[in-house]
């Protein structure tokens, strides 16, 4: 990141090679459209280049900063293009077909055991499906508690509890992971 802050294009190229797959997956999870995801990916890396001076290592890791930026951009993009309703419908179909997408991903054969990714998925997939769904809708779709309650026909208080419990379990799980790694 220091090299990018010093405006070294090769450093951005390296950063792109390292993280484009993760950021594209995140964007895709939000917008559900390959072409839009590619456009947003390019915009986000341009923003990383333009905003690099605002990154502070004291406030976290570069990946965390980039993910925060990418998520906000992707959700903004989704709303600006007024594709929210269509994505919601698609998400609903996907949720019905695949109520525990995170759990499904965790069993992919190609994933190498011992990878940090697997450990994180293990933490997430350990949550009850209702908690996973609430977090998924909040994080990847940018929904408020009220929107989640309406979408899932669940009382607002229950949604809040699901989010609080689920996030705490993931947070605690991550802390344990950090201690182990």
């Amino acid at each position: 990141m220091q090299a990018i802050q010093a405006e070294d294009p090769d450093a951005l190229a390296q950063l792109y090679d390292r993280y484009n797959g993760i950021l594209k997956a995140l964007i895709l999870r939000v917008v559900h459209n390959e072409a839009e995801a590619d456009d947003l990916l390019q915009e986000i890396f341009m923003e990383i280049w333009n905003q690099a001076k605002n990154f502070s290592a004291q406030k976290g890791k570069p990946l965390g900063w980039m993910v925060t930026l990418a998520r906000r951009r992707a959700i903004d993009g989704l709303r600006k293009k007024q594709a929210y309703a269509r994505a919601e419908e698609r998400l609903q179909n996907e949720t019905e077909q695949q109520p525990d997408a995170w759990v499904h991903n965790a069993t992919e054969e190609e994933i190498v055991l011992g990878d940090t990714r697997v450990l994180i998925r293990k933490v997430i997939s350990g949550l009850p499906p209702a908690q996973q769904q609430a977090i998924d809708l909040a994080f990847f779709q940018g929904m408020s508690q009220r929107e989640i309650a309406a979408k899932t026909n669940t009382p607002l208080g229950t949604v809040k509890t699901r989010l609080e419990l689920g996030l705490k379990k993931i947070y605690d799980g991550l802390k344990e992971l950090k201690d182990e790694l």
Binding site: L26, F139, I170
Partner: peptide, 21 residues
Amino acid sequence: YGLHEAFALSLRPAKSSAAIK
């Protein structure tokens, strides 16, 4: 904010075209 990183890492990386880069 570490949660953001974790959620992103929980996804399987997606491929993007070389043209983007």
